[in-house]
Amino acid sequence: MAKTTALPGVQPALLKWARESAHLSLDEVAGRLKKSVEEVDAWEQSGAQGPSYAQLEKMAYELYKRPLAIFFLPEPPAEPRPEAEFRALPDADLRDLSRETVLLIRRARAYQASLVELFDGRSPVSHPIWKQVQPTDYKSAQSAAAVVRERLSVPAPGDKEWGTADGDDALKVWRRAIEASGVFVFKDTFKQKEISGFCLAHPELPVVMINNSTTKTRQIFSLLHELTHILVGWRAISTFDEAPLKRLPPADQRIERYCNQLAAEILVPARDFAALVAGLPRNVESLSSDDFSALAERYRVSREVILRRFRDENRVSQAFYEERKREWDGQRVEKQGSGGNFYATKGAYLSEWLLSEVFARYGRRQITVDEAADLIGVKPKQVDELESRFLQGLAA
């Protein structure tokens, strides 16, 4: 067997930084490379030892998703760590984020960098919603939510403008309204299923990414929840489970609870809801899942949002809420078709505003196909087909 030769110039500190920033352990990397833990650890500790070129390529492109050249820098580049960048989750949970979630955060940062480049660091919206609405300026979440709905120009619950819109249609309505307010919305399939979404702060070009691996109605709440984070200046990664909330410092708990309350109020206005359920008994624990579904349908939200409304009004116990939530959580995964189309998926995952701007400039030949591909994160050969499908969707 030919002896592999260590590659000169690779910095041990860069190897350790790349592994840790991808949230991978020595054991995981050693297993993927079919090397001993001791050998991989030695690469990170000693300048006298290091990976071969082939091993470095695998580490860069398959494991850490980094450019090869980064390992030859004199020191690790400055990059925010999740526990320093985000709130709404305890530090221990942030340190335990999966590699896949960390890569999604990195992808969202790349999209945000594309937006900064395209719009010269300035919001394309003349009056971004987070500069118009400061929730703390209002006496209650109810009054703040009413202003948010007004600024988003979303039809009132039950309004005929909703027509027969299902969860998918309703998600599109909310998503377009939020993008029109200056917040860029992306989706992806989160392999770390308990993560519902996150937002990246920016004074002009904030980004939200939500988990597509769940029902459309659950995605709607995740989207509005991340919007409230942006409105209160709260950089956050969110989970479906409320348990991490209890491990936050008291001040952080108050902010996150307020965000939950505000998102619920935007989607299910208290006055409208009170009128709708006025005829129901004070304790509604006898209602069936179908009864909760019928209420949820009016607001195009999940049953859990309705149940949370009743819990906050002390019309169900915390124990009942948690029991039903566990039951419904087991049903929340969106049914997926077999296979799937790359272009349809990519078009649904990317911000509509980002795609529109990139393809407009590409069509005017202001940017090359390589530049367009780089801005939206696809291969150059995929740009034309993605553009065609995107324009067909707008015309439909």
Rank of each mutant, 00 (worst) to 15 (best):
T136R: 14
V125I: 15
A54K: 14
R271T: 13
Q219V: 00
I266N: 00
D27R: 15
V268E: 03
T345F: 12
S302Y: 07
P269L: 09
D374H: 10
P74A: 03
E39D: 07
I367Y: 08
K191H: 14
V301S: 11
Q331G: 02
K187W: 05
I230S: 01
G9N: 11
S302A: 14
A344G: 11
S238Y: 06
A170W: 07
E226Q: 15
L73W: 04
L152G: 05
R19C: 06
M1T: 11
T5M: 11
E297K: 14
N211T: 02
K3R: 14
E79V: 12
V29W: 04
G50K: 11
A22Q: 07
Y53E: 14
D329C: 05
P250Q: 07
P206W: 05
G167M: 01
D159M: 05
Q11C: 09
S36M: 01
C199I: 05
G50M: 09
E265W: 01
S222L: 01
L295Q: 10
Y64S: 00
F320L: 10
T345N: 06
D241Y: 09
R308K: 07
T239A: 13
L89C: 04
V37P: 01
T215P: 08
A177E: 00
Y138P: 01
A319L: 13
L227D: 00
L231A: 06
S36P: 05
G393R: 15
P269S: 10
L205T: 03
H127L: 12
L231V: 08
L15D: 05
K58N: 07
A141D: 12
K65D: 13
R247L: 15
Q142S: 14
L152S: 11
N260A: 06
S289F: 10
L89M: 13
I70F: 04
S351R: 03
T136A: 13
L7Q: 14
R282D: 13
H127W: 08
K35C: 11
L295K: 11
R389Q: 15
P380K: 09
D96G: 00
V284E: 08
D137Q: 13
F240N: 04
G340Q: 06
D312N: 13
T164Y: 00
